[in-house]
């Protein structure tokens, strides 16, 4: 008997249960189990990890205080699939343009993110987006953006350009993602809201808040089970 694949959802703070609820609705021939991850032991049992939405500062600070930062950085290094949504995208990035003092990040993707890029809650919104270029047939996915971040810049070798930006927070993780960053989706105004780099993926929006399971199914098929 083959054991089931374990997909963890980081449960330090935020909307982690929502991810698990969506995953559990998906019918699949592959056997999965979905668990909340709060400790190093739980993390070690995972084949893939989702970092949910929440408050990026809170998640980072709690990770540091509960000795989870290093295990999470090591998980990134282990090259297992990781998906970050909203705050999770911020946590997964290599740099934050407007981070807070003491906010540490995992450095899994060569991107610089901007927090609250659309402004305050009054600028939060819902919109259907066309993801058919990377998820076949999904041309009307309902997305929710809540005080959402965006990918401000894809980091390449042009270190100088981003060094000029003053208070950039940089990840202390020595990991270097071996793949190239692909932009999966840009809004009409050019803002980058979904990126992929190898088996890491980051989204500004919250597929876990829609009742639509297709994004989560794609993550399992494409990243976790390698269907």
């Amino acid at each position: 008997m083959t054991r089931s694949l374990v997909v963890g959802v980081l449960a330090l703070q935020g909307a982690f249960i929502e991810h698990i609820q969506i995953f559990e609705k998906i019918q699949s021939p592959v056997s999965y189990s979905f668990i909340e991850v709060r400790t190093e032991e739980q993390l070690h049992s995972c084949d893939a990890l989702v970092i949910p939405g929440g408050e990026s500062t809170a998640i980072s600070l709690i990770a540091q205080r509960t000795s989870m930062l290093k295990p999470l950085m090591d998980f990134i290094k282990s090259e297992k699939p990781v998906w970050g949504t909203c705050a999770g995208l911020i946590f997964l990035s290599k740099q934050i343009v407007n981070g807070r003092e003491g906010q540490k990040i995992l450095g899994g993707m060569d991107i610089m993110v901007k927090r609250n890029a659309f402004g305050r809650q009054l600028n939060s919104f819902e919109q259907k987006l066309d993801f058919s270029t990377f998820i076949p047939g999904v041309s009307d996915f309902p997305t929710v953006f809540i005080r959402a971040p965006v990918v401000e810049m894809i980091l390449d070798d042009s270190e100088e350009t981003y060094n000029k930006l003053g208070e950039v927070i940089r990840s202390e993780n020595t990991y270097q993602n071996p793949s190239k960053v692909e932009i999966l989706h840009q809004l009409e105004n050019g803002l980058i809201v979904a990126v992929r780099q190898g088996n890491k993926i980051g989204t500004s929006f919250h597929p876990e808040l829609s009742d639509d399971t297709r994004f989560h199914k794609w993550f399992l098929d494409e990243f976790v089970s390698g269907k």
Binding site: L12, Q13, G14, A15, E55, A58, S124, V144, I146, L209
Partner: peptide, 18 residues
């Protein structure tokens, strides 16, 4: 109502928090 998802969604992001 579409607005509701955005309103209730922020509260969902605060879950497990103080």
């Amino acid at each position: 109502m579409s607005d509701f998802k955005v309103k209730a969604g922020l509260a969902q992001m605060l879950k497990g928090g103080v």
